[in-house]
């Protein structure tokens, strides 16, 4: 087992004026590990991911790469954690694919030459080199997803948080995404409804129910137990 990269203890969160979204969540992610997060819609999976990059802040303790997730550490944490959002359109905001992929590294203050290399490498990883000059609205849903992933990879994060990465993808695009993600060395937290997708990538899984992790184990074991196929 590698270094401990994410450690969450007794995390609880309630949306203002809303229901309790997380209840006493405990979670650990080690280096080079991929953990699938399964569970029904509204069970707290995305809320949980948002806590790992400090977009939400609840009770309990969250540490990422040894740093507590507090305002003073957010810059350093977000350099080390890349998050792929559920809807790629939320995260591709630059006028062209190339500019969007370059956005993260340029914000890190990297020199233009290094940024160009990172952009090149990232687009190659997701197979979008031919579309680099296109505006995002000219891409298909699958291509936008890959462009968003390239933008995350370009910052060279240690941890990838992937929120429903296979949504809206057709089977060949899903297989391509499994190959791409499987080849990446980063530790990953993979939120998904798709058992086969999770089984192809994850070392283990946790199951969310009503804001809490109610089970942990192999993907197939949890899928059978919760009739999640």
């Amino acid at each position: 087992m590698g270094d401990l990269l994410i450690e969450v203890r007794d995390l609880a969160f309630r949306y203002p004026g809303g229901a309790q979204a997380l209840r006493g969540v405990n979670f650990r992610l080690h280096r080079s590990e991929t953990v699938a997060v399964l569970g029904a819609n509204g069970s707290g999976k995305t809320t949980f991911l948002n806590h790992l990059v400090g977009l939400l802040s609840g009770e309990g303790s969250v540490r990422v790469c040894g740093l507590p997730v507090i305002a003073a550490n957010l810059g350093r944490i977000r350099q080390r954690v890349g998050m792929l959002f559920q809807d790629a359109d939320d995260q591709i905001f630059m006028p062209t694919v190339e500019d969007d992929v370059a956005f993260g590294p340029l914000n890190l203050g990297l020199p233009a030459e290094v940024v160009r290399e990172r952009v090149e490498w990232s687009l190659e990883q997701v197979g979008l080199n031919g579309q680099r000059r296109l505006p995002p609205h000219n891409l298909s849903a699958g291509e936008r997803r890959r462009a968003a992933l390239a933008g995350v990879l370009a910052t060279n994060p240690e941890i990838l948080l992937l929120d429903e990465p296979a949504t809206f993808l057709d089977p060949p695009a899903k297989r391509a995404l499994v190959r791409t993600l499987g080849s990446l060395p980063q530790s990953k937290v993979l939120v998904t409804h798709e058992v086969d997708f999770a089984a192809a990538l994850a070392d283990r899984a946790v199951f969310f129910e009503d804001g809490a992790i109610v089970a942990e184990g192999a993907v197939s074991e949890l899928a059978d137990r919760f009739k999640w196929r």
């Binding site: 990059v53 959002f85 905001f93 630059m94 190339e98 933008g151």
Partner: peptide
């Protein structure tokens, strides 16, 4: 969507500028 875009901007290191190559 604007709320989600703002979150995505933050996670990608947005500091008030859109740098471009």
């Amino acid at each position: 969507r604007s709320a989600r875009v703002a979150q995505a901007l933050l996670t990608r290191g947005f500091r008030g500028e859109f740098p471009r190559l």
